[in-house]
Design a binder for these strands. Structure first.
Lengths: 164, 164
DNA sequence: CTGTTTATGTTATAACATAACAAGCCCTGA
DNA sequence: TCAGGGCTTGTTATGTTATAACATAAACAG
């Protein structure tokens, strides 16, 4: 009866438990293979980000840590988030000054995001290969090191809600 | 003797006075035709942004305004910058929490930026039509309203300097 | 000259982020 | 064993970016 959800993992229904397990397992494996420590704070912050497909501000994360006795000062949250971003387990959303767990852990990628301005859901996509600015960069001799691609708009569910 | 600069207006040498005059004239005309006021503060802030092809923080702009007696409190700068962005005379660079004058005033556009991490120069380009995320959005039913595209890297001059 | 709209002035505070230093933990090699 | 180094965490303090809320003033239409 309910229309089938779109294939996108963040917007449609999906087995979110699998999201979480996959991401945590990938992080465990990556840390082990890289010889970096997946400490309790770092792991917990990733778990917090993984709870929803939404971007969380550093201070939101910090509030959670504080309630759980894992730290109460900004640097605790910023360090853990910085670690997760460095390792590719999370991404910073510039537009929101906030962070999301990575949806494609393990694979090297140039991430791009679809951000719903109504419900805050963030869906991670793959940016065009070479990047959307490859041509311009080549023309001018600019060497691109990293590209931020973030689209804002309305997700399917929020469009439906707005139409109602 | 010196190698010819690339064609890109921001990175290469160019008649910057013409940049400024063109942009101010376009802003004058647009304000007149839209019936909005191009007040002294707004005009001055655009002039300040136009001085270089670099992004300026709101508080940098504010410091300039303050020295010139045009305002000393954050809302003064944020309002003027907000106006310029609304009208398309300037753009906000999310990655830098800063603002640049628009390089293509007058034409409706989906801007994209090349940001040199060394000298801070910001060059404005045109994003791919339909946007770099058009395909993903269409697949999932997401309706894109705006897309941020910002590449960081090294401009030609700074690459040369780094190599030396 | 009065009410409306638009812009500016001002206070105060919210929200985001990091520098700098102290303390603990764990490993390793003398 | 324990001295030292490397890494992580704890804490203080502060820096940076941004906006809510309300007061004042200027411009204009009725």
């Amino acid at each position: 009866m309910t229309p089938l959800p779109p294939p996108d993992p963040a917007f449609g229904r999906h087995d979110h438990g699998a999201c979480v397990r996959t991401a945590l397992a990938a992080a465990d494996a990556a840390c082990a293979s890289r010889g970096v420590q997946f400490t309790p704070v770092r792991r917990r912050v990733l778990e917090i980000l993984l709870e929803h497909h939404e971007a969380l501000g550093a201070y939101d994360v910090l509030a959670r840590l504080d309630r759980e006795g894992l730290g109460s000062k900004p640097p605790v949250a910023y360090r853990a988030l910085g670690f997760l971003v460095e390792q590719g387990f999370a991404h910073r959303i510039e537009r929101l000054n906030a962070f999301v767990a990575c949806s494609h852990p393990g694979s090297a990628h140039a991430p791009a995001f679809l951000i719903c301005r109504s419900c805050g859901t963030v869906s991670e996509a793959e940016a065009a290969p070479g990047g959307p600015l490859g041509k311009e960069a080549a023309q001018s001799g600019f060497r691109i090191e990293q590209t931020v691609v973030e689209a804002q708009g309305l997700c399917p569910a929020c469009q439906a809600a707005a139409a109602a």
